[in-house]
Design a protein around this nucleic acid. Structure first.
Length: 444
RNA sequence: CGGGGAGUGGCUCAGCCUGGUAGAGCACCUGGUUCGGGACCAGGGGGUCGGAGGUUCAAAUCCUCUCUCCCCGACCA
């Protein structure tokens, strides 16, 4: 995977937002090995079953066949479990709250730019606790953190929920997730937070002595978001003219395009442009040999929130023309007001972009009361043609139901934590009672 | 792994059927004129046509093998 400069700058801004929140909640960054002894994966039965098909394995190193192959990490629960066992002896050692920023490999058969790549960058949080309640609290806290960054920073509204048992992380008790809706109505799992119970504690013998002096296995959690979020960001906001970045994730918030005119006032224009740009923190596009029109298109396509036009007429009148990326609207304003108005405008744009996405999510979420209804709603939906919906239906968390929904090329994305609909009902597959509607959608 | 499609200057592609001097647009370089939504003129640089083998006087073009990439399905953050 290659991420070029503009995309990587967005990733860095996202990283900063997450990292700050992780540290504020007591987590510390660490680093663990890229190569994991293959046998580690086999210690947890569901884990190895889930990940085996997509492992890249190193069998040769230093010119020799290895006695035991290494796998390139697809996720790090196992190797971290191995080290937790060495480090944790007492209840006083708990909780352990670590995070790792790393790259991982999952050998996908079918990749899609940013959304599903063989290699991706992510963060994986791994924590160990002395009891289940505290672990669950951690799982929920980090899910809330993900939802907060998605909504407030990325301007992407999400549904928080629990995965079905079929869809949960391999080796977890429960997997919580946030699901976002792309512009084609497809769902994108934007972040996951897992309650691992004592599964990995038992598999890696991570034991501690509790206050009563007895040995017990730790309760673990893990949670992650990846560079997939960049794909989600693009697919949530962009339009036919290119990328639309919410201001909080725009590496460049404003670009000024100077226009020189025919009267040889170029030097004065440039001088004033740089002065004004400095005051408001904008970048001046003073490249030679490009017309203003070409520059407007250039920055528009890259999603820069605000483009400022500054030409001879503005120089004469003390004004400047501002164009916002989200609505495409142009407005003239006094140069003196710009520094003051720009931050407020960026804030308004951030909100506007979120509101538009929220509106889309709401209007494309529908109820269905039979499997036939779900089928007819999702029948002709494809990633390319769009038309996808979040279909809310009563479905039991039962592998049979997951299989039935899969026949429609859709999945049960999650059972929402908050029931915004009509409470209990009968499962549309089995007829059994369930306490709320679940979210069914086609997904990336 | 099944089914489709494509490999020709940096990019997008034409040329292939019917073998005969490798092309276009964009991008790039030089000079000039321009500049309020993808500028124009003039000049210029750059390609062993994915690879190997074969047929032929002659292969981007025909034949055989092979590699890679993209799209569609089954598996998935």
């Amino acid at each position: 995977m290659v991420i070029k400069a503009n995309g990587y700058a967005v990733w860095e801004l996202l990283q900063r937002e997450f990292d700050r929140r992780f540290k504020a909640t007591g987590h510390q960054n660490m680093y663990f090995p890229l190569l994991i002894p293959q046998s580690f994966l086999h210690r947890e039965a569901e884990h190895v079953e889930g990940f085996s098909p997509e492992l890249a394995v190193v069998t040769l190193a230093g010119g020799k066949q290895l006695d035991e192959p290494y796998v390139i990490r697809p996720t790090s629960e196992t190797i971290i479990g191995h080290f937790f066992a060495k480090w944790i002896k007492s209840w006083r050692d708990l909780p352990v709250l670590v995070n790792q920023w790393a790259n991982i490999i999952r050998w996908e058969l079918r990749t899609r730019m940013f959304l599903r790549t063989t290699e991706f960058l992510w963060q994986e949080g791994h924590t160990a606790h002395s009891n289940h309640d505290e672990a669950v609290e951690e799982v929920r806290r980090m899910l809330d953190t993900y939802a907060e960054v998605a909504e407030e920073v990325m301007a992407v509204p999400v549904v928080k929920g629990v995965k079905t048992q079929s869809e949960k992380f391999a080796g977890a008790l429960e997997s919580y997730c946030i699901e976002a809706m792309m512009q084609n109505g497809f769902a994108l799992q934007a972040g996951t937070s897992h309650d691992l119970g004592q599964n990995f504690g038992k598999a890696f013998d991570v034991r501690f002595q509790n206050k009563e002096g007895q040995l017990d296995f730790v309760w673990q959690t893990s949670w992650g978001v990846s560079t997939r979020l960049i794909g989600g960001l693009i697919m949530s906001h962009s339009d036919d003219r290119g990328l639309v970045l919410p201001p909080k994730l725009a590496p460049t918030k404003a670009v000024m395009v100077p226009i020189y005119g025919r009267d040889g006032g170029k030097d004065r224009i440039l001088e004033a442009a740089h002065r004004i740009a400095r005051e408001v923190g904008a970048k001046v596009d003073d490249r030679e040999g490009q017309t203003p029109g070409a520059k407007f298109f250039h920055w528009e396509r890259r999603g820069v929130p605000v483009v400022l036009e500054f030409g001879p007429r503005d120089l004469a009148s003390g004004s400047i023309v501002l164009k916002r990326r989200d609505t495409g609207g142009k407005q003239p304003m006094a140069q003196a007001e710009l520094a003051e108005k720009l931050p407020a405008l960026l804030g308004e744009m951030q909100k506007n972009i979120f509101d538009a996405a929220k509106q889309r999510l709401t209007s494309n979420t529908v109820l269905a009361n039979s499997i036939g209804e779900v089928e007819s709603i999702l029948k002709d939906v494809t990633a390319e043609k769009g038309g996808g919906k979040f279909v809310m239906a009563h479905v039991k968390d039962d592998p049979r139901c997951d299989l039935r929904v899969k026949e429609l090329k859709a999945t049960i994305r999650c059972i929402p934590l908050v029931d915004e609909y009509d409470g209990p009902g009968k499962c549309i597959v089995t007829g059994e009672p369930v306490d709320r509607r679940a979210l069914i959608a086609k997904a990336y």
